[in-house]
Structures are given as C-alpha cells and as structure tokens.
Design a binder for these strands. Sequence first.
DNA 1: GGATTTGTAGACTATTTAGTCTAGACTCAA
DNA 2: TTGAGTCTAGACTAAATAGTCTACAAATCC
Lengths: 191, 191
Amino acid sequence: MGRALFDNADFLSAARALAAERGPAAITVDLVAERLKAPKGSFYYRFASRDALLGELWLTTVLAYQQGFVAAIEAGDGLAAALHTPAWVRRNLDDARLLLLYSRHDFVPGDWPASLRKGVREQAQRFESCLKAFARQAFGRSGVSQTRRATFVLAEVPIAAVRQHLERREPPPPLVDELIAETYRAITSRR
Amino acid sequence: MGRALFDNADFLSAARALAAERGPAAITVDLVAERLKAPKGSFYYRFASRDALLGELWLTTVLAYQQGFVAAIEAGDGLAAALHTPAWVRRNLDDARLLLLYSRHDFVPGDWPASLRKGVREQAQRFESCLKAFARQAFGRSGVSQTRRATFVLAEVPIAAVRQHLERREPPPPLVDELIAETYRAITSRR
DNA sequence: GGATTTGTAGACTATTTAGTCTAGACTCAA
DNA sequence: TTGAGTCTAGACTAAATAGTCTACAAATCC
C-alpha cells in the first residue's frame, strides 16, 4: 500500500463505538483492529500503546465536555455551568458514559503516556481555575473551602444527579435539572 | 490435612486487603491465594468462582453500609440517613472505597452467581423501600418523582460529596457534612 | 527508474488469568 | 484399623491480550 488506509481518527472512533456498546473494558487492541478490519501492525504504527489510545480518547472527550462548562463560567453564569452537565449528557449519551461512569483511572491505570501529560495537566488546571473563578464570584473568596463548595455545586452534584440515567443509557429527565438548580440556589445563597 | 487451614472468611479478608491496597482489579484468584499462602485448590474448594468471591465481598460490604442507613430511616430521621454516608466512610475508609468508588458492575461484570442473587435482590428492595418511606414522609407521596428526589438527597448527593476524598484515601472533612445538610434542607423544604 | 518513505499484513511471543484435575495427607467415626 | 469424607497441594489447560518483528506493497522523491 503506502497510502494510509487507516488513520488515528479511525482507531479512535472504533474505540469509541466499542466503549459505547460494550463498555471501556471492550477496548482491546485486537477488538479495535478487528472492528476496523485493520491489522494490528497498523494500530501500533499509529499509537505507541493501548494506553496512548485510551488516553487520547479520554482527553478529547473531556475537552469536548469541558468547553461548554468553561464558556458558562466565563460568561459569569454559574447556574448554566451546573446545568451544562445534564444538557451535554443528553446530547452525547455515549461519550458521557465513557467520561462520567468510569474514572480517569479506570481508563489509564498506570502512568499516562508522556505525550498526553501536558494536555491532561492543562485540562485539569483550566477546570480548577474555573472553579476558583466561580468561588470568588459566588462566595467572595477562593480559599480552600469556597473552592470545595464550588466543586460540589458545579461538578459533583450535577454528575451525581445524572449518573443513574447514564447507567440505564437514558437521557436524564427534566427533574434532574430541577434538583441541580435547587441545590445550586441553596448552596450559593448562604455564605 | 483434613482440618481446614483456610476458610471463607480468610479468602474474603485477603481479597478485601488487596482491594484496599491495589484496587479491586488486584483481586485475582492467584493473588488472593498467594497472599494467604493458600493453594488455588483451597480457593476453589470454598468458592465456585472468582465472581462468587467478589459478589460476596460486595454484598457483605453493602449490607454493612446499609444497616445504619436503614436504621436512620426507620427512626424517621432523614438528615441522619443523609449524613450516614460520610460518617460510615470515616469509620470504614477501605470498605467505602470498595463500595462507592466502583460500581456493582465493575465488581461482578457478568451475571451474579445464583447463590447471591436473592441476597442482592433483597438488599436492593430494602434500600428502595427506605427511599419510598422517606419520600412519603418528606414529600407526602411516594410516586416516581418523589422517590427520585429521595434518591438524590439521601444517596446521590452524599456519595458525590464524599467521592473525591475517597479517591485520595482521606476522611471527608466536616465541610462535607455541611454541604450535605444544606442540600438536604433545600430539597426537603420545597414541594 | 532506483532508492526511500510510509504504511499494511499478520504470524509470533510472552504474560496474565480463570478454572480443572489428580494425588495424597489428615481426621473422624465405626 | 480401616474406609469415607474433607481439604491441601500445585501442575496443567485454555483463553485473552499487549506488544514485537519481519516481509513486502505502494507511493514519492531525486
């Protein structure tokens, strides 16, 4: 051949599809290659390791998720940021399962491939600074406990509210948004 | 020999210890046996399969966790039920990681061993009826959406609040109880 | 058109793991 | 004492899986 039959994106989307159908444990190099009818050699020509694939899959997904969240925070709208989770989940059920049902650790058990470390670090920092910005805006300070509050109301609660629907592969009902919003108001109205 | 050198409980606690140290993926039959310096044959003499071990581990742990929760509900104290999670987590850090950080599905991927199905079903029903009882008491009815509310405030939120500390193997700080309590009051005061 | 790059093709290796199987040691009851 | 039952002991099998390696085919460049 000499001209590429399979590129990075092909492997990534095959992996994504496998994860959607059978969970992330089904993302084996053999299954990904088989699904694409690609030889294993081609896979390892594109990716240094299985972890490199999983890491890239996780990172691109988390960045896609995070985008709307960051935008809402930058617009100064904390409630929109909290409600971003159910909204994004409704539009991206499969990817949301990937992202929220399995921790980053289930994905890449050992050390992250060097090529992705920087991206992951930047992603985490970006998220963290959103939380701090919100803490300052909503609670007047961005100390440890205000930031902890921000994490609770913008991340933990929305993800928790959505989890059981993710497990059942169904879009979260409107009640989920209500619960998140009520919690948001309660937590941001004091201190 | 003829007299038992290893019993069920030995294997269970070896598995528990392995999970605490290296995560549930480290619960392999070989590692459990090795830790106990028991031969594999003894393991399979006690347990029908690896899933039987994992299932029993999960079930005993969830029942231990659930006990205090049920007691609080039966005493009519919803807030105590919500705060039971951080309290139990503080007293049982390792078991809590086992229970709350990994879903039942990560534990026993396929079908549950027949011997445990009944126990799991009863456990789930018991939990469910607690939620309904609380829904009736707090929201006047136990329809779908009141029960959903109960799940949110008694289970999802407390677990979410505790999660990041579990990941870091540290006891949840008092702030976690505050967040849970504030959310509890907000969610139970309307409707 | 020959050399080089780019990539396919897939057999092969090594490791991990659940589970099986046979041998035999120890205990206890009759 | 002997026979039945209980349990240890660990070698062995089979399957799954990450990763390697060599051959070679096609495109591209000089």
